[in-house]
Nucleic acid binder design. Sequence first.
DNA 1: TATTGTTATACTCTATAACTATA
DNA 2: TATAGTTATAGAGTATAACAATA
Lengths: 176, 176
Amino acid sequence: MAKTDALAPEQLGTYFALMEAVSLLQHAVEQQLRADGDISYVQFQLLARLADSDGRLTMTELADGVVYSRSGLTHQAALLEKAGLITRGPSPDDQRATLVTITDAGLTRVSTVLPGHIQVARRLLFDPLSDQDLHALGDIMTRVRDHMRAQPPRSAAPRKRHTGPRTVRGAEASTD
Amino acid sequence: MAKTDALAPEQLGTYFALMEAVSLLQHAVEQQLRADGDISYVQFQLLARLADSDGRLTMTELADGVVYSRSGLTHQAALLEKAGLITRGPSPDDQRATLVTITDAGLTRVSTVLPGHIQVARRLLFDPLSDQDLHALGDIMTRVRDHMRAQPPRSAAPRKRHTGPRTVRGAEASTD
DNA sequence: TATTGTTATACTCTATAACTATA
DNA sequence: TATAGTTATAGAGTATAACAATA
């Protein structure tokens, strides 16, 4: 039945500290990006990835690593295109592919947003860390990330049954 | 003008590794909670917090630490109540307050979901870590979390101007 | 007046499924 | 048949503002 025992107390504490800290960090970052450049973190990631690359990537290449679905990427790309930050066009190599290009405005936007972004990361994450901490954290999280990437999707997730028709989502009968 | 310089390469790498790893972890956890107990991570947090406490907390106490707005909490509480996992009632101490109580079904749901949750955390996060890593990570993230909690909200966030009416959200003119 | 909580509303994000076109 | 991408649609999450009631 595999390991379903409780986590060691130290594991539990570490897990929750990690989750909460990063939630706070994500929240702060979203705020900053929205305030400084009116983009979300996901949009920032897409732009940054394009800026880092040749400035051009196919949708599939762009999506790689950015978790979600193709349709989600299409949606974000449409928003970024409407905002003039990227351009989409046919690929010469593969007629099926869409080639995404970052515009000058896109590059400008990234550089507009970057300083504040860095400030937030520094203020929230790095300020309380020593060089040694930084090194340790980098080492650990790099290893963890690579491990996660290598994990089989989530087909392996156990499939249990609910106790009944109880749903904690919005839908639901509410027969009255 | 404070420190707006680029982060050290090691900082940048650490930051991105942290963000990506936790994003993957969050995603996996959401999947597991939804599959095993049809709840979100936020809902799990609320239930877990209630279970940890006396079983009863006011809305304000419950919200504490769970970032978002009061209305968001009200919404989630309504969902949990509809699902029979919590109960809301007036507080004897303060007539303004709402006392939230976890039900037996709520406690059951938590215990239903917990083993899988732990499995995910173990498989994705702890498996690739040595005891020493665990200790270091716990120490670091606890410190970071406490530091973040102590930070002034986000009033301190710099306020820059956009280059124009460019919006990367859904709304927007789209005059054609 | 300040605090607790709810309601109404609006918007963003994400995912699934169906569909088109090219390899 | 498999892959690249889009569209339509549906649902969940979150936040802001206005409001009611109690301290």
